[in-house]
């Protein structure tokens, strides 16, 4: 079943030029896409190509200038159902510090359910469930500022989860983290996906993309490609065009393949690929 569908969506920002005139700056243009329920989708593209704009269109933080955005059957432009829609879309941004509303972890996570008007005993239950989903229960009473970046970002995810969304959008939520913190956050995302959550992961790290079920590639506000990671990474021309680079493992497998080794990057998913390369090399 399709959970997110965008139909010919465009959005442009006001651009204030130096000469005092107001022009338009394209955020996204003519984007049509659909995401199946339970998918793990990566959204990639170089800086300023419109990924964050697209993310903000998904929960009505921005409303499309033309076209429609539907999530869980609700349209973002419908003012009456916007609240309902936001309940279904959890969103986590890049900088964890700027997403914290309370100075105690527990209360920060409770912010969403409190807004929903959930009764008090259920709030507590939701908060602890969300914290245990991200493995942070033991920090419930501490101050977010004493936590590491990865831990803070997991708290931010818990804050989104406490609303019990169907879709989780992570907008470069791993960008400020070290490899360990990144792994923490990604592991949580994959675990949630295994439990049925639809995840949209916006990222600049191509290694993260390998584990996704499909990839959306954006360039200058347009959606230029959509496919499985292997399809995308096999398409050299596309990658060069949008200025992306396949992960090292894929590049290595390609090189080995053209050197006559028996590895096929296209056919195999990421994990197997790594194993394959090793097998071939150790032969």
């Amino acid at each position: 079943m399709e959970i997110i569908s965008l139909d010919n969506v465009s959005y442009s920002y006001k651009a204030y030029n130096d000469d005092g005139t107001v022009g338009e700056c394209i955020g996204v243009e003519g984007v049509t896409l659909s995401v199946e329920e339970g998918a793990f989708v990566a959204l990639v593209g170089h800086n300023g190509c419109g990924k964050s704009t697209l993310a903000k269109l998904l929960n009505g933080l921005l409303l499309p200038k033309s076209g429609t955005v539907r999530v869980c059957g609700l349209t973002t432009t419908d003012r009456d159902t916007l609240f309902e829609l936001r309940k279904n879309v959890g969103m986590v941004f890049q900088n964890p510090d700027n997403q914290m509303v309370a100075s105690i972890v527990e209360e920060d996570v409770a912010f969403g359910p409190e807004n929903l008007g959930v009764p008090q005993p259920e709030i507590v239950q939701r908060v602890y469930e969300a914290l245990s989903q991200v493995g942070m229960e033991q920090f419930a009473k501490s101050s977010p500022h004493r936590l590491s970046g990865g831990q803070k970002q997991r708290i931010a995810i818990a804050g989104a989860l406490a609303i019990r969304p169907k879709v989780l959008v992570l907008d470069e939520s791993t960008a400020m983290l070290d490899p360990l913190g990144r792994k923490e956050v990604l592991d949580v995302a994959h675990k949630l996906n295994a439990q049925g959550m639809t995840v949209v992961l916006i990222t600049h790290f191509m290694e993260e993309v390998l584990d996704c079920s499909s990839v959306l590639v954006m360039n200058n506000g347009h959606l230029v490609a959509q496919g499985t990671p292997n399809e995308i990474f096999a398409n050299r021309r596309l990658l060069d065009e949008v200025g992306l680079r396949a992960p090292r493992t894929v590049e290595l497998a390609d090189k080995l393949h053209s050197a006559g080794f028996n590895v096929d990057a296209l056919e195999r998913s990421a994990h197997i690929l790594g194993g394959d390369v090793c097998q071939e090399l150790t032969k």
Binding site: G90, N98, Q99
Partner: peptide
């Protein structure tokens, strides 16, 4: 950014808001 994060978490002012504490 904070306003976006709060909106994403269904903040709509005081109406019908409950409190964990």
């Amino acid at each position: 950014e904070l306003a976006n994060a709060m909106n994403s978490r269904c903040y709509e002012g005081a109406t019908k808001r409950t409190c964990m504490r």
